[in-house]
Amino acid sequence: MQNFEKRRDRYNAFASFENPLVNLSFELEVPDFRPHCKHHGLPPFHFFLYHVLHAVQGIENFRYRIYRGEVIEIADFWASYTVVNQDNNLNFARFVMTDDLREFIARSLASKQEAETTTQLINTAEDLSEYEQRRNIYITCMPWLKLTSVEHPIYEHKTYDIPSLAWGRFSDPRADGKLTMTMSVQAHHGFVDGYHVHLLAQAIATGIAKSGVSSANRTRAQP
């Protein structure tokens, strides 16, 4: 928590606001991972989700939470995201994070199937303890839309401390091997500034590139 103490005065300032949240929408540019996923039999959404969540986990400011009136730093969090169920209603998938990509995807697919086939609203965090509820990240994807901005429903702005990420439709393939989408990042401004959102965007792109996607795109571009 040494790094947090360097910005405690910023936290105290924003914590006094009725709405201390910052919400930034921006164009995220990453290596086009879709050919890589097709070649290796990986579902693109779950591949991307893996890199998004691990990028979030690697930035300390996104791990700060408010617990019983004190600021804490969580070590890890649940992997969770919104799903459309068989009735075309909202549901939630949730599973335990892992560093292994294929195991992460297997868990994600299993959780997605459960959320899709369940008519009741599940994984709402009501089954978790007060502390376990802090170990969360909210993720939503709207692949039908070219997202420009989003406003998330908030029960109480003043004490809201869990980051929310959203993105929309991926761009068409580009000649330079890049993929773009609009991403929205919402977080407590006492913890996160625009700089940290910039770090997150960089970390997502770097993680995807390190997975071998960049070399796959260069190979595709050769005559």
Rank of each mutant, 00 (worst) to 15 (best):
E151R: 10
G69I: 12
E70K: 14
A75K: 15
T119N: 07
S111T: 02
S164F: 08
E70P: 00
N89K: 14
A175K: 13
A75F: 09
E70G: 02
I139W: 11
V96C: 08
Y160C: 08
I66V: 15
A125W: 08
E70V: 04
Q186N: 03
Q133F: 09
T118E: 08
N123V: 10
V56P: 01
G58W: 01
M183L: 09
R107N: 11
V96W: 02
P173G: 09
N88S: 14
L179D: 04
T118H: 11
C141N: 13
T180A: 04
K178H: 05
S164P: 00
H54N: 14
Y195G: 07
H196S: 09
G190C: 08
F92K: 13
K178V: 02
P143K: 14
Y64K: 10
H157I: 02
I74Y: 06
P143T: 13
F62P: 11
E132R: 12
N136Q: 15
S184Q: 10
V52R: 02
T182Y: 04
Y138Q: 12
A93V: 08
F92G: 01
P163Q: 06
Q186K: 12
A93D: 10
F104C: 07
R174I: 03
S108I: 03
T124E: 06
T124Y: 04
F170V: 06
D76P: 00
F92P: 00
N85Y: 14
V56N: 02
V56F: 15
Q120L: 10
E103V: 09
R63G: 02
K146C: 07
N136R: 15
D176C: 12
E132N: 13
Y64N: 04
T148G: 06
Y67G: 04
S164I: 01
D193T: 15
G58Y: 01
I72H: 12
I122T: 03
N61K: 12
N85E: 10
L109E: 15
S129P: 03
I105K: 05
G194C: 11
D99M: 07
K178Q: 14
R174D: 04
A79Y: 10
Q186A: 03
G194S: 06
D100W: 10
A187I: 12
Q57Y: 08
T148K: 14
Y81M: 09
V150P: 01
D87P: 00
K112L: 03
F104W: 01
R174W: 00
A93F: 14
Y160D: 09
P163T: 08
W144G: 01
P143V: 07
Y155R: 12
T182L: 02
E132I: 10
I66K: 13
S164T: 04
D176F: 11
Y67L: 14
S149D: 14
F170K: 03
